[in-house]
């Protein structure tokens, strides 16, 4: 089980990976989205916000989310640190993403662009 602080640290690593990738920022200039990241086994909520291609992270839930990412704390931390890709936990049901199919594909894409090889 990961702690809330570990999830925060993983999201900050994700943000750093994103912000270093200028091409990814260009790709997402048109995609303004609010993402709620919620752990299923501990009280932990974070907000990822994409606006004009820039990604910000903050603790707590947003008033309204376009996408909701739910998983156990360990999977969330592994995912945002890039230790695992979203596909496997998404396919086996460990990771639930609530939102439009297009947005889910795009979130998967961002993660792969940051960590994929």
């Amino acid at each position: 089980m990961a702690t809330h602080e570990e999830i925060t640290a993983s999201l900050l690593a994700f943000q750093e990976g994103y912000n270093k990738n200028e091409r990814l920022k260009i790709m997402n200039r048109d995609w303004d989205r609010v993402v709620l990241v919620q752990a299923s086994d501990i009280p932990s909520q974070h907000t990822l916000e994409l606006r004009n291609g820039e990604l910000s992270v903050r603790e707590g839930a947003p008033p309204r989310a376009d996408l909701t990412v739910i998983s156990d704390s360990e999977t969330l931390a592994d995912l945002f640190y890039g230790d695992i890709t979203p596909t496997e936990p998404y396919m086996n049901g460990t990771l639930k993403i609530i939102g439009s199919e297009d947005d889910i594909v795009r979130l998967d894409f961002i993660s792969l662009m940051i960590w994929g090889e």
């Binding site: 979203p86 596909t87 594909v105 998967d108 894409f109 994929g116 090889e117």
Partner: peptide, 16 residues
Amino acid sequence: AAKLLPEMTRLPFHML
């Protein structure tokens, strides 16, 4: 393709 396809090809085909 090298970054994306190894994972994207595991998604259900109707998503792609």
